[in-house]
Simulated assay, not measured.
Amino acid sequence: MGLDWTEAKQRQPRASAILARTIEKDRLAHAYLFEGSRGTGKMAIAELMAQVFLCRQRTGIEPCNECADCKRVTSGNHPDVHVIEAQGAVIKVDQIRGLKKEFSMRGMESGKKVYLVKDADRMNASAGNSLLKFLEEPDGEALAILTTTRPQGMLKTILSRVQVMSFQPLSPDVFVKSLVEHGVKEQDALLLSRMTANLDEALALTEEDWIAEARKKVIQLLDDLVTRPGYSLISLQDDWVPFFKEKPDVQLGIDLLILWYRDLLRLKVDQPEELVYVDQEDRLWKQAVNLTEERLANHLQAVVDTKRRIDANTSPQLAMEQMLIRLQEG
């Protein structure tokens, strides 16, 4: 079963409310542009719109999810739903021409047709102009939904002929819930929700248990720093450096360090319910009681400074070693 409007409104309250109200009043536009960052649910809601448009048994705004049309849309094989996406780097004019040819024929199931153009900003000029003519003169009963992360990269003439719906980053609660629904452990989902607002990016970080392993490395390094400070540089060399090999990975590791120190600050100001490392509260308390607020602020600043230095192309390993020395000195 696909998304329903209750879930859609949780993910995208404003855009979904407008679309649902439009369906309720039977005033669907013939063409929409869903714009927003990746992982905000644009294609899931586009699929829901296709179901609504094609379902012949729906009551109110919800598709029935039982008829052949609904099932074919959610399985991705409805003959009257056409998805266009880039072949290589761009969407080519031949793809749009092929789409127009499809639409010149009556819908196989209901006389209606839906076309979804993914990453519409990747259309080359010829494809964009060809689609423009299609938007100006839709053939029969059709619904067009274009998606993009870069509306500024699209022809202004296309933007003027579609109804633009802006998709906002998911709220932290919805983001965590979505990750958990994708099989991510809640403790990892909480961390990811503070590191990115992009669902696709967050899921990529869970591949091969990367985020879970990164989390362990961070906790181990900080534990060594507190319980056996003389060993922390060895821990850095033996465990941290081999794992966080590339600069972007190092930056993510530092983000996890920053989140740990912010958790320590949360305990200092009596906000345990806001912890990100929820399963590490005992360890966090042990560290928090041994740090004054001033020392804790200095530690956090040392980590933030390290991230800035790496941004400025300081050697990640050197920057991390110097950070550990600063943290040991207090």
Score class of each variant (00 low, 15 high):
V303C: 10
L324M: 12
R56L: 09
K245H: 13
E35T: 15
L170A: 09
D255S: 15
L324S: 07
L284Y: 00
T292P: 08
W5T: 01
S37K: 13
H299N: 13
M154C: 03
A31C: 13
I219R: 14
E35M: 13
P229N: 12
V276M: 02
Q12D: 01
P63G: 07
V303D: 04
H78K: 08
L205C: 03
V83F: 06
L143H: 04
G36E: 08
K112C: 04
A142F: 00
R56P: 01
K286W: 00
L259G: 02
E213F: 08
E137F: 06
Q95D: 03
P272M: 10
F134V: 00
R21Y: 00
K217C: 11
S178F: 01
L170R: 02
N298S: 12
Q152G: 14
L146M: 08
I45C: 06
I45P: 04
K133V: 01
L3S: 01
L203T: 06
D282G: 00
V73C: 08
A89R: 14
N124Y: 02
D173I: 03
Q51P: 07
V176P: 05
L327A: 09
D282F: 02
V250R: 08
V90A: 10
D26Q: 13
R262G: 02
E85Q: 15
G60C: 06
A50S: 15
R215G: 06
L291W: 03
L155T: 03
S160P: 04
G253R: 11
F175H: 05
N313P: 06
M195P: 05
R262D: 10
M43P: 02
C55W: 06
G230R: 13
E137M: 06
T149V: 12
I45Q: 11
C70E: 07
Y261H: 11
V269D: 00
N298Q: 14
I18E: 00
C70K: 09
R194Q: 15
M105D: 03
K25D: 03
Q87I: 11
P63A: 04
S171G: 06
K245D: 14
E109M: 13
Q328C: 10
A204W: 00
M323F: 07
A202G: 08
L257A: 04
S37D: 11
Y277I: 09
G230E: 10
E281K: 15
K71G: 03
R122M: 11
L190M: 10
D69W: 08
Y32S: 11
K133L: 03
A125F: 00
A8M: 00
D80R: 10
S104F: 10
T314D: 04
Y261T: 10
P248L: 14
